[in-house]
């Protein structure tokens, strides 16, 4: 087993004045190349903090992140993030939003025409080429998130980080987008790390599910393999025994052993 992405004894302590809060405690995780890993946990358990640490947007208090055996501690396009609220720049068109990253990452390796083609290629991957000249305010929430995914994919990241990417979408759009992400993963073989609080989403999409205990001092409580063959079909899985068993395991973890006591 080759460790492509390795989280090595990560602790995170927030200090505010005299008060210190330990958010994450001793997080160890290795992710293989091409793997789809979900991190699930109740809100406030620090899963978004963990993603920010991997992305380099927040520093770990101790421990570190290794990508291909190299420590990474600042943000970069090799760990592109799809943000929860899409975070498209509203003054740029869909095309320009994707191009922003492409221009930086491929400024030396691709010509202008190649970069343009690459932007369009990625917009095509998420079926958003038709809206390339629209501004974010003119497209729907699901479409914005598609563009967010295209922007991240276009940077050719080594690891794609998804921060609750479907959280703000309605159920139908969410299902549609989940299928799209599954298809992209199948096609491109990206390594993906996704933060979620949706059990079905985690089981449907992931190869492994990392379950986090409640904070403060959240740890990895359990890691569950999801031995379901790909490509996965949402409808067929609904009655699949393995699927149901995995789902059951996650539900038990979240609602029995690590119930969220204080309602958020």
């Amino acid at each position: 087993m080759t460790a492509y992405l390795k989280l090595d004894h990560i602790d995170k302590v927030f200090t505010r004045g005299n008060a210190t809060t330990e958010v994450l405690k001793d997080i160890n995780l290795t992710i293989e190349k091409g793997e789809y890993v979900s991190i699930i946990g109740h809100s406030g358990c620090g899963k978004s903090t963990l993603l920010n640490i991997i992305a380099g947007l927040t520093g770990a208090s101790t421990g570190g992140v290794l990508l291909e055996n190299r420590e990474v501690n600042s943000p970069g396009p090799d760990r592109a993030v799809v943000f929860q609220n899409h975070s498209l720049l509203p003054w740029l068109t869909v095309y320009e939003n994707v191009k922003l990253g492409v221009d930086k990452v491929f400024s030396k390796t691709k010509t202008r025409a190649e970069r343009d083609a690459w932007v369009m290629h990625n917009l095509n991957l998420v079926q958003m080429a038709h809206a390339k000249d629209k501004r974010p305010s003119e497209i729907s929430g699901g479409m914005k998130q598609r563009v967010g995914i295209a922007r991240a994919l276009a940077m050719e990241p080594k690891v794609l980080l998804l921060d609750e990417p479907f959280g703000a979408l309605d159920a139908l759009t969410r299902a549609h987008l989940q299928d799209s992400v599954m298809a992209l993963h199948q096609k491109l073989g990206n390594t993906i790390l996704m933060i979620t609080h949706d059990v079905d989403e985690a089981v449907l999409l992931s190869d492994r599910i990392v379950m986090m205990t409640n904070g403060p001092s959240a740890r990895i409580g359990e890691v569950l393999d999801v031995p379901l063959a790909r490509p996965r079909k949402r409808l067929e899985l609904a009655s699949n025994a393995t699927y149901l068993k995995c789902r059951q395991r996650v539900l038990e973890f979240l609602y029995e052993r690590h119930r969220f006591v204080e309602a958020a």
Binding site: G56, G76, F83, K104
Partner: peptide, 8 residues
Amino acid sequence: NVAAVVQL
């Protein structure tokens, strides 16, 4: 964050 990831 976007700017940081893109490394502007």
